[in-house]
Amino acid sequence: MILDELFGESLEKTLETKLPLRFDENGRFRVLMVSDIHGGVGYNRKKTVAAMEALVESSHPQLVLLGGDTAGPGYIHIETTDDLRSLLSDISAPMESRGIPWAHVFGNHDDNYGVKNEDAERVYEEFPHCVSKAGPAGLSGVGNYLLPVYPSVGTDPVFGVWGMDSHGGMTEFAERHGKSEPVKMLHPFAGGHGSYDSVDIEQVMWYYLVSKEIEKRYGRKLPALMYAHIPLPEYEIIVQNKDDTHFFGYHDEDVACTALNPGLFRAIVERGDVRAFFCGHDHWNDWQAEYLGIKLGYDASMSYHACQNNFLRGGRIFEVNESDPWNIATETIKIRDIMGHAGDSDE
């Protein structure tokens, strides 16, 4: 009722997905995340397609998440929805041919090559196994959704995957909020150069209220994984406190996040259901850590074009067992490990 009023989408509608997601007969649910492909007409099709195939083949996922910046920027030559359609046919082939559901969130480059996110989303949803949703009309951004995951046997979801649109840059923030100029950024930024955007308060409210309604409806909280393109400001706290946060992995560039904190991490702590938040965006970071019982971290870039990193190139795997869905195990998967080389040679 309240969700309808505030965001124009009922809980029923939020829980609907094109294809149901389920734990397998062994009670396992495996997710593969791949981020920052930076594709277009001028991308290295051969290498990317081979690497995607290798990732899906070796990780046996039941869901594949594209963590944003899948297309663009403009110098990779992508201009029309047809260009995007052809790119997505390449990238999604390993999922579509195996019947594996996949979803995506938009990154800061996805809407700066000429196709609006609203139009791009329709192209994504043309694919039979793409389970992404544009999300409630009352929210800013495209691609705010919850994918419920059902047990191997049973009708009530036991796990969830939240996707959030983290928008683009600070100029876009000012435009979206009707400000004549960007809100002054304070140093030290809670992260990197601070010129990126984040989710809006309304999106955080939507997460909070849907999470609360779900608890009311099923009599329990729904443990979940959340992903978005741009990191949270709390990532900066992690990198300054590696010893206290079970920090593990590569931190080869600054956290490039927003300087304005809408309280998403705080809302997650207060609701106590999302147990892992992962993002892309910073191509050279692939670390994971833990803060207040919540796993935070990165999926390094898959790109062969933009700020590429042959050593880190790959994806991230999440595995959850239905006997304890509160425990999300995660590790990176590297192209160099599964293909024997970083996929960057011409062989």
Binding site: P188, A190, E236, I237, I238, Q240, N241, D244, T245, H246, V269, E270, G272, E290, Y291, L292, G293
Partner: peptide, 18 residues
């Protein structure tokens, strides 16, 4: 108070804030 209230595991020591 919120560690108690939100049941955050105690093994995750609070890092120093910024």
């Amino acid at each position: 108070a919120y560690e108690r209230e939100y049941g955050s595991p105690s093994r995750s020591r609070l890092p120093y804030p910024l």
